[in-house]
Nucleic acid binder design. Structure first.
Lengths: 207, 207
DNA sequence: TTAAATTAAACAAACGTTTAATTTTGTGCG
DNA sequence: CGCACAAAATTAAACGTTTGTTTAATTTAA
């Protein structure tokens, strides 16, 4: 499905509002108003409010695996080096799209909607396969330790970011992140480094 | 504010529904129906739907610090030993109350509501203070390494759990967690151990 | 007999979607 | 280029529901 400029505007506005006020908390009237269009256009273009959400998710979650596999494929670099870059990539991507992930998290644990987000889940599966192959190669090369719960590595990366994100009001105060710039810098440096160190420690040292 | 049995029933039902269908997705009519009361009783007892939520959060988030400090105070046990129990306590508590935390996560990053959750934030601050003192004592005893981002430890513990929780549909398939019992067991053992190992590695080994 | 608890009904407001009419745009032809 | 016609885009209005809250009357309990 190709999107014209007006449709892109709707998707963009809707994404912001859904994350800000929740899916149920955002009315099609508000979306229309913010996007400067008539309310009927949402049904006209996307069929319904729910389908607009589905469409949004599918189109936001593509291209990640390509970046991931690019890093993994660079076998002239050390395993730790690549691992650090994988972590940085995950954090960067999830931070950029944190609004859409908030919606997905909500809807995946929401019994009211029939949304399955099959695209999201299959994408996640493929990403895990790539990461698994990389880690197992590192284990075979005796760089990474033997017993690692590989499927739980990504929850530790993304979960750390998201718990910071969901409780940002708390951590902004703890770390004195008063401006948006200082917050961005914190995520790029301190938070990312923390997660990198954590993963390196976890998959390197035997207990 | 003391609660009679009927009020407790309302709070209990509302918590379940809010987490399941979201705050906006849950109508007072549904709460009333599930709790077996008249819709007017919600306003009668709590004032409004929003105040019911506030009340819910305050009453669910107490008592944790006591448990936390009890573990820390046992200075006959090793630092690693106590750290593992702290992690287990965090996971256990958060898992037990994951529904209320989902609501808080949502509302804290929701601009529509004016809810501040001051009780939640101050509680979190006190917990962090306790953890910080414990970690710093461990550093002084040369058991833990020097450079640790202490405020980010809790996001790593709870974030790992929550990312697993929010994507449970995915991990249920990955790990074959078909029954509620197997899922409970997984959280209690594999997931908890993964987080424990991760934190031990992180705060022990210098890079 | 007084206060608290409970009820059904009504309230206005907001919801997502559809309708039918109108305007804008695109295309083929002379 | 200019006209005619069809398709697409856009609009205001209306649709029937559902929303949270309040009212006023009634029942229950102290």
């Amino acid at each position: 499905m190709e999107l014209n400029d007006k449709q892109k505007e709707i998707v963009q506005v809707a994404e912001k509002l859904f994350a800000e006020y929740g899916f149920d908390g955002t009315s099609v009237r508000l979306i229309a108003k913010e996007a400067g269009i008539n309310i009927a256009m949402i049904s006209y273009y996307f069929g319904s409010k729910e389908k607009l959400l589905e469409h949004m998710v599918v189109h936001r979650m593509s291209g990640f695996k390509v970046n991931l596999d690019e890093i993994i494929a660079q076998d002239d670099r050390s395993y730790h080096d690549r691992l650090n870059e994988i972590v940085a990539l995950y954090v960067k991507r999830i931070h950029k799209n944190n609004r859409i992930y908030k919606i997905v998290h909500n809807e995946l644990t929401n019994n009211a909607r029939s949304l399955t987000f099959e695209h999201y889940l299959s994408q996640k599966k493929k990403n895990l396969d790539s990461v698994t192959k990389f880690i197992e190669a590192g284990q075979k090369a005796h760089v990474f330790k033997k017993h690692i719960e590989i499927p739980l590595l990504i929850p530790s990366i993304l979960g750390t970011y998201f718990h910071f994100h969901y409780n940002q009001r708390f951590y902004e105060e703890s770390y004195g992140l008063n401006t948006p710039e200082s917050k961005e810098l914190f995520i790029e440096t301190t938070l990312t480094k923390h997660i990198q160190k954590m993963l390196n420690a976890l998959i390197t040292y035997e207990d």
